[in-house]
Amino acid sequence: MFGQGIVKGLWVTFKHFIATYTADVRRGTEQYLGSTLADTPFEVRQGTKAKGIFTVQYPEEKLAVPERFRFIPFLVVENYDHPERPGHDWCTSCGICAKVCPPQCIWIVRGEDPQTKRPIPEPQAFFIDIDICMNCGLCAEFCPFDAIKMDHDYELASYDRTANHIYDKAKLSKEFRYWQTIAPTTAAEEAEARGGWEHSDVIKERKKAEASAAKAGGAARGAAGGAAQRPRGQAAATSEAAAGQAADAPKPEAADDAAAAAEKAKAERLAKREAALARKRAREQGGQ
């Protein structure tokens, strides 16, 4: 009979029409006011079991974006209340993000020592043209220092692009703490891969210092901790110096350079061996 299909279709639309009300009746006020259930009403509406309207009333309630959400990149800097290096860039201006950026929207001026003209591992300037950026996240994915991350703030509309849309370092930089808040799981995973919550360079130095300190004797432990907590400018010093200092503390009489160097080499060898053994053990355990 002609018209049967339309009636069937209208039945579907009718069910859609009343779905919100039936869901309200069934679930009570929980969809809007919350309940004793673990899910928030918002979650219920946005979940797979929801029926009826699921509109997000945008400015009054916003759909929080998931952790891996990608928008414009930002640069991670050390927390502003960090004891050793507050506000210091994590970026070492290695340029990998600029190279891997598909539309080439990243400009980096590598830092330079004003006297020696040798490159230093921090960017002097960093620009991202957000009118070119395609939010692909490759920069964040391939950054070896976890220094560039994709931001979650999408509310960026502006009235003028010439003045606002090339982000410079000041505008791009955000505290590490911010990254921990917007992406706790990812940040934790990355920290695990790095071996600590600090920047990978700091961790590396600390490890070196600790290794040599361990070699230098149990009494050196305090000094090694002190060495790791030195201000950032000195922390960039070579491990040799760190080893030297650590060695200095317990036995000041052994200030002989050659002896210190030999000591250091031995310490490194031992540390490496220890690490290799640990890896092997871990592998064996993993195998079982």
């Binding site: 979650e43 979940g47 309630e61 916003k62 759909l63 952790e67 917007i182």
Partner: peptide, 26 residues
Amino acid sequence: PEYIRSTANLVNDQIRDFNTMEYLTD
């Protein structure tokens, strides 16, 4: 991801937290 989870970042952000496999299965 293990969870389809969001964190509140902006004003008025409403969060969701679903188990990914449950969500997918459903």
